[in-house]
């Protein structure tokens, strides 16, 4: 399996409501893919299924991690993260009472081997491992330009930086693929341009794939190599930005049908 993520026939029911209806999707390594669609199309539900918050009703989610291809349906979220998928949220969900560095360090947690014994007795190996983790986290913060705010409480950061910090924390889990849920939500046009550069830079330096949900079409069209469009839980189109822009189905989903047509 060469795809980093492969989703086949994913279906999610909430009682009688089918929020996601047999959606297929794949992401290749180092690819930037966007998932778009009107409000309530099921995009975030799709993310929640992939990251293990929901267990899908039907379908397969296959991940090509460094431990080989695995079906991850019904894995607990922390197991999914260990397999190399990291995500951010639409609304910011940092740990507000921790410092910036601590927030990133927490992301490293699943990659540390230290057990309770080590934590209590703080042997040489544990200390060395913690120091290395702290250094790596600092490097990530430097990359995102947050290193000066290291010791600030996360809740004291300006909005744009909090968004960046969420990405930094996700990167600390050493993902193969980053899932960003509306990363540009609430940003002004300049911040959105910066974010576009940032996401591309992350893909280039970290060599990871990125799947993002976004409503800002400028960002989506500039950034993504392929686009999936969802409406009413179903995938209605996929292709390159140019194909999507000219797809009548997509235009219909976003703008509604012309009365004369």
């Amino acid at each position: 399996m060469e795809n980093i993520l492969e989703v086949k026939g994913l279906t999610m029911d909430f009682g009688g409501l089918r929020a996601v209806d047999s959606v297929d999707l794949y992401v290749k390594p180092k690819e930037i893919v966007a998932l778009i669609g009107p409000n309530g199309a099921g995009k975030t539900t799709f993310f929640n299924c992939v990251t293990g918050i929901y267990t899908p009703t039907k379908g397969d989610i296959l991940v090509n991690s460094n431990r080989g291809g695995v079906r991850i349906n019904g894995f607990k979220p922390n197991r999914v993260t260990e397999r190399g998928l990291a995500r951010t949220f639409q609304n910011i969900r940092l740990f507000p009472n921790m410092t910036v560095l601590e927030n990133v360090m927490i992301g490293k947690h699943c990659r540390l081997s230290a057990k309770i014994f080590g934590a209590l007795f703080r042997d040489k190996k544990t200390r060395a491992e913690e120091l290395k983790a702290a250094q790596e986290c600092y490097v990530i913060l430097e990359k995102l330009g947050l290193e000066k705010t290291c010791d600030e409480l996360a809740s004291n950061l300006p909005y744009g930086d909090q968004r960046k910090l969420e990405i930094a924390r996700a990167l600390a889990t050493e993902p193969k693929m980053l899932l960003l849920d509306e990363p540009a939500a609430g940003m002004n046009p300049q911040e959105t341009v910066d974010l576009t550069h940032l996401i591309r830079m992350i893909r280039d330096t970290e060599q990871i794939a990125i799947l993002l949900i976004e409503h800002d079409m400028k960002l989506v069209m500039n950034l993504s190599e392929r686009i999936y469009v969802m409406d009413h839980g179903q995938k209605i189109a996929d292709g390159t930005p140019v194909e999507i822009r000219n797809n009548p189905e997509v235009i219909k989903a976003y703008l509604g049908e012309d009365i004369d047509a």
């Binding site: 995500r87 969900r93 927490i106």
Partner: peptide, 13 residues
């Protein structure tokens, strides 16, 4: 502070 988020960044809650 946030149990779901803790799970998502790989903490065995």
């Amino acid at each position: 502070q946030d149990k779901t988020m803790a799970l998502l960044i790989g903490i065995d809650v």
